[in-house]
Design a protein around this nucleic acid. Structure first.
Lengths: 164, 164
DNA sequence: GGTGAAATGAGTTCTCT
DNA sequence: AGAGAACTCATTTCACC
């Protein structure tokens, strides 16, 4: 848990591989980065303990799960005070449609990424779960046409993107 | 690759567990969902082949990697035509700061989630990589104060959130 | 579809460098 | 910090229900 993290080139390679596929076996990972499996396992464990790797989650196809309509909701919370805001965020995170919530600067305080079954479901979400609440001043809704994920996140000095 | 996916309660349990931790061992997963390991492995493979599970990525702490300042960039692309838009998105995805890109409805066409090293780095990103391009009409920048991830994404009929 | 045993292969520990 | 052997345990296959 040091503030100044020393990440060797090998660590960066590990982070790159695991951000592409978190289920890469330790044996394969070791071969890719040029270490013995035992040594490689050690480095991965260090990265976990240091908090650099925070978790690994399976990603799912929202449309195949019956949620083909995604949207971003821009929400203005009226008295922008902490207790109200915390309860509002907790409420959002309890909804099955919510993929992520962001607290932002700017005129709209919160941004929620949601995945809904239909336009009717989206309308219900906005009206019954958001605008019906006292603390919600305004909600703007924008649909998601398409989305892309960036490559692995790496420290600034190691700018190189690999082919894969 | 069927259009109508039949997801049993066991499949949903599997999706829930793997969205929490994609490295859950097949043995543990089988025990959790109440199947023999061999059967469980079969179901997970089916979910992969059906495209329901699209991948699994390690998540990293952007701040610990030296990127403590995250932001959303709202970008208006001027002639909103396909070839221009595709090159613009490809350019964005090639930048090491970009975590995700979304094509949206509304006045701002694109939304980019970025992780930068500093305000100066963010300024450079906006000015040198975005506003300097001919097709970019406008960029609005909002900083991210805090962010939260929603729970596992599940089909609409199975609304229940588990305790975790 | 589900199971359990058997074979294969990986994860993990330990000692040594 | 890294390596390699040895041990342990999980993954995967297959014949059967």
């Amino acid at each position: 848990m040091t503030d100044v993290l020393e990440l060797s080139p090998v660590d960066l390679e590990i982070l790159r591989v695991l951000q592409n596929d978190a289920r890469t076996s330790n044996k394969d990972l070791a071969a890719t980065v040029g270490l013995a499996p035992s040594t490689c396992l050690d480095r991965v464990n260090r990265l976990r303990e240091a908090g650099v790797i925070t978790g690994q989650r399976a990603q799912v196809d929202a449309a195949l799960l019956g949620r083909p309509l995604e949207a971003f909701l821009f929400v203005q919370v009226r008295p922008h005070r902490r207790p109200l805001v915390e309860r509002f965020v907790a409420h959002l995170l309890g909804l099955p449609e919510v993929r992520a919530v962001y607290h932002l600067t700017g005129p709209d305080d919160f941004l929620a990424h949601v995945a809904t079954t239909s336009a009717a479901d989206l309308q219900r979400l906005v009206m019954d779960e958001l605008t019906s609440r006292d603390e919600i001043a305004r909600v703007h809704t924008n649909l998601v046409f398409q989305q892309w994920q960036g490559g692995p996140l790496l420290p600034p000095e190691d700018r190189r993107r690999t082919a894969q």
